[in-house]
Design a protein around this nucleic acid. Structure first.
Length: 456
RNA sequence: GUGGUUGUAGCUCAGUUGGUUAGAGCGCCUGAUUGUGGUUCAGGAGGUCGUGGGUUCGAGACCCAUCUUCCACCCCA
């Protein structure tokens, strides 16, 4: 055998069964998004490198897949730079384009570029793959799908409410009722930083406290101090974050500890308003979690993350961003969005056996091929069957009966129709149920109605 | 990017301290049944042991490199 073909690390093929299941997730998300008035858009797999660089932090820049320039790309590079072998400095010389890292930044670019054709608030959803040069591990791929829903051009908190409802509905429809939806607000975090004298270290503070459930209070404290944050401030911040109790209780305690910190009060108000506006059934699933921070630093208000006790990482995340379009030259465009991690949801649903069994709705009726004349007649009847809204196919080759029957069996086809010389002469068709093994002859005229009745 | 782990037939895996011709189950193909799948029975095909070097009289087993898998860190869907 020649060298076995393979695919790049962290990417996957999907066989029909897996693909059907993935489609089920996409379709479910899509139907919910559309029912709330969101419209689909698509953007290219690649963006100009410049569009993406610097939007996700240094760590993010490292994880962006860069596309090598075409043509004689080395001839234009400065000799001195080449000799120094500084990869980072050379990237911009060698690569002008990159694969998209998420859907949010390309969306911001899209909004700025198409602002005159869009009416605001603009509600869009987008289901496309993104690429990250991360090391693969559990729930982590180099190519994966995000299902993004965003509304931009409105700072109403009703959007927060709506997105939480969307999350609730999508996961309910998928059979994942036992998710935990955690919310927080960057204004609260910013207030905590201010009250603790850590404003200058806001980014490091959020990255650290985001790990609280993983490495514990002591771990977070250690990390913050290691990163040079003043110990007194760290202690104060951790005390504030560690408040526990029901939502109202936590918010009240927090408000009490935050006198004079305007920013925090705005955040607390926002959280209160959102919680109050949620339908009861959704509110039950939403918990306020002051340790939720989220690494992406473009978030400015509400932040949302969805997790499941049987999965190590989040399956959905998002938040409000006040100025994402600003970096592309359009300011005053507040937006909020969430992103569902389709691949992680898939893995979780597979582990919990949540996919409906009838998903692979392939062919319902197959016609055995006995030869040219017979196959032509079968082809005709198959069209009739299809016209009666059933799926039908004619086996393309006049292969051995056994092979054709095995094909029908393997493919889970419910009924096999046989039109051989005898049937052709008598105007009948032998219909065999693959489930029961029963077989009966019926007239060709009655076939569609017969099958329709049986397949009900 | 850092640390660890994995790779033997299409799939899941055996393979003793290095020692003849590398095995099993499932799947696949053929036949019993040339117009009947799924069940049963009888046969059969399929592997340069991830790849490239090295140690050795001898390597699927040992060493090095590389790719891949999975896991943790970083970061994240």
């Amino acid at each position: 055998m020649a060298n076995k073909p393979s695919i790049p690390k962290g990417t996957r093929d999907f066989v029909p069964e897996q693909s059907s299941k993935r489609q089920f997730i996409f379709d479910t998300a899509r139907s919910v998004f559309q029912s709330f008035g969101y419209q689909p858009i698509e953007t290219p797999a690649m963006e100009n490198l410049e569009t993406l660089l610097g939007k996700y932090g240094d760590e993010g820049d490292r994880l962006i897949f860069k596309i090598l320039n075409n043509g004689d790309y080395l001839s234009k590079v400065d000799d001195e730079k080449l000799r120094q072998k500084d990869s980072n400095a050379l990237v911009k010389e060698l690569s002008d384009r990159a694969l998209r890292y998420d859907l949010t930044v390309p969306f911001a670019r899209f909004v700025v570029q198409n602002q005159n054709e869009l009416s605001f608030p603009f509600k869009r959803y987008q289901i496309q793959p993104v690429w990250r040069a991360d090391r693969p591990q559990k729930g982590r791929y180099r190519e994966f799908y995000q299902c993004d829903v965003d509304v931009i051009g409105s700072d109403s908190l009703l959007n927060e409410t709506e997105l939480l409802c969307i999350i609730d509905q999508v996961f309910s429809k998928l059979g994942l009722d036992d998710i935990s939806i955690r919310i927080n607000n960057r204004k609260i975090l910013s207030g905590i930083a201010e009250a603790s004298g850590l404003s200058a270290y806001f980014q490091q503070m959020t990255v650290a406290i985001d790990k609280l459930d993983k490495i514990g209070v002591d771990g977070v404290k250690e990390e913050m101090i290691r990163n040079g944050l003043p110990e007194a401030g760290v202690k104060k911040a951790l005390n504030l974050i560690n408040l526990t109790g029901d939502a109202e209780g936590v918010l009240n305690m927090l408000a009490g500890a935050m006198t004079g910190v305007e920013e925090a009060f705005r955040g607390i108000d926002e959280v209160r308003t959102v919680l109050k506006s949620l339908p009861e059934s959704t509110r039950e699933k939403v918990k306020i979690d002051l340790t939720l921070a989220r690494g992406l630093n473009y978030y400015t208000g509400a932040i949302i993350e969805v997790g499941h006790s049987e999965f190590p990482s989040s399956i959905c995340g998002g938040g409000r961003y006040d100025d994402l379009t600003g970096m592309f030259g359009l300011s005053d465009m507040s937006g909020i969005g969430i992103s569902l991690g389709a691949d992680r949801i898939y893995d979780l649903m597979e582990a919990k056996n949540l996919f409906p069994s009838n998903l692979d709705a392939g062919t319902q009726v197959m016609f055995v091929n006995f030869g040219q004349a017979e196959a032509l007649k079968s082809f005709e009847l198959a069209s009739e069957v299809r016209a009666s809204t059933m799926s039908a196919e004619v086996y393309p080759d006049s292969a051995k009966m056994k092979k054709q029957m095995k094909y029908a069996n393997d493919k889970g086809i419910s009924f096999v129709c046989m039109i051989g010389a005898e049937e052709l002469a008598s105007g009948t068709v032998a219909v065999k149920s693959m489930g029961t093994g029963e077989q009966e002859n019926i007239s060709m005229d009655a076939l569609s109605n017969f099958l329709k009745e049986k397949l009900k």
